[in-house]
Design a protein around this nucleic acid. Structure first.
Length: 222
DNA sequence: CCATTAATTGGCA
DNA sequence: TGCCAATTAATGG
C-alpha cells in the first residue's frame, strides 16, 4: 500500500493526504536512461519519485544538454502546469537510474490541491525554494568557476542523501556519472574529471570504485 | 572472461 | 576550457 512516505516534499503531510495521492496514481517502473516525457508535449501527468533519480533537461540541436533539475526520491516533477489545462512539459525528462514512479493525472493533481489546502501551501513554498535554487544556479554559472559549481552540486547531493555521515564525510552512491555532473554545471565531462582530480588531491572528495563518492562538505568550502 | 561504459590524460585550438 | 584521441579502469553479465 503506502509507497509514498512523508519525506522530502511530502514531509509534514498527513497520512490521509498521502493515501489520497496514492489512491489516484498508479505505480510504474522504468529502466535507467529511459525517456519519461518530451518538452512541448501535452502535460498529462505528474510523477512522484518513489525510487531512483531523474534528470529534467533541455537539449539543443547539436545534442548538447543542460540539466535544469535533478529529481530524487520524495519529490515530484514537473513543477508547473497546475493552473493551465493546456500546459505542456517545459523540458525533457529522463531516468538516470532505475526508477519507480507514482503517476498521477494532471486533473487529479489539481483536484488534490483543491481538496487539501495544506498541499497547496506546501507547493507554494516548494516552488519558491526551487525558484531561489534556480536563481542561484544561474548566477553561479555566470559569476563563479566551474570548480565552485561542481562543489555546490556535490554538497547538495551529500546533504540530500544525508544517510551515511561519518566524521564529516558523506557518501554519495550509485547516482550521477561525471557526464551527468557535467551536464548539470555546464561543462564537458573532461573538465569535470579534471576538477574531481583536484578535489581528490585536496582531500575534499574520495572515491571508491566508480560508484561510491565520499564528500567532505567542509573541506569543499575552502 | 569478455563486452560495454565510465573515467583519465595528453595534445592542441 | 573545449574537443579529439588514446588508454586505463570498473562494471555487469
Amino acid at each position: 500500500m503506502s509507497v509514498l512516505r512523508a519525506e522530502g516534499w511530502l514531509k509534514d503531510q498527513h497520512e490521509s493526504v498521502l493515501r489520497q495521492i496514492e489512491s489516484r496514481g498508479r505505480l510504474r517502473s522504468y529502466q535507467a536512461k529511459t525517456l519519461v516525457f518530451l518538452k512541448g508535449k501535452s502535460l498529462t501527468h505528474y510523477f512522484f519519485v518513489v525510487k531512483g533519480l531523474v534528470a529534467v533537461y533541455r537539449q539543443n540541436s547539436e545534442g548538447k544538454r543542460w540539466i535544469a533539475s535533478l529529481i530524487g526520491e520524495g519529490t515530484f516533477f514537473p513543477h508547473i502546469g497546475f493552473d493551465r489545462p493546456s500546459a505542456v512539459y517545459p523540458a525533457n525528462a529522463e531516468t538516470l537510474t532505475e526508477c519507480t514512479f507514482l503517476i498521477v493525472h494532471r486533473k487529479d493533481m489539481v483536484c488534490l490541491m483543491r481538496e487539501y489546502p495544506s498541499l497547496q501551501e506546501h507547493l507554494t513554498q516548494f516552488l519558491s525554494e526551487k525558484n531561489q535554487e534556480l536563481m542561484t544556479r544561474c548566477s553561479d554559472s555566470l559569476l563563479e568557476s566551474a570548480a565552485h559549481r561542481l562543489a555546490q552540486l556535490l554538497k547538495q547531493l551529500a546533504l540530500q542523501s544525508e544517510a551515511q555521515a561519518e566524521d564529516g564525510w558523506y557518501l554519495i552512491s550509485d547516482t550521477l556519472t561525471e557526464e551527468n555532473m557535467a551536464d548539470y554545471i555546464g561543462v564537458t565531462q573532461e573538465t569535470v574529471s579534471r576538477i574531481m582530480s583536484r578535489f581528490y588531491q585536496g582531500n575534499k572528495v574520495k572515491r571508491v570504485g566508480r560508484k561510491k563518492i565520499y564528500v567532505n562538505p567542509e573541506q569543499l568550502d575552502r
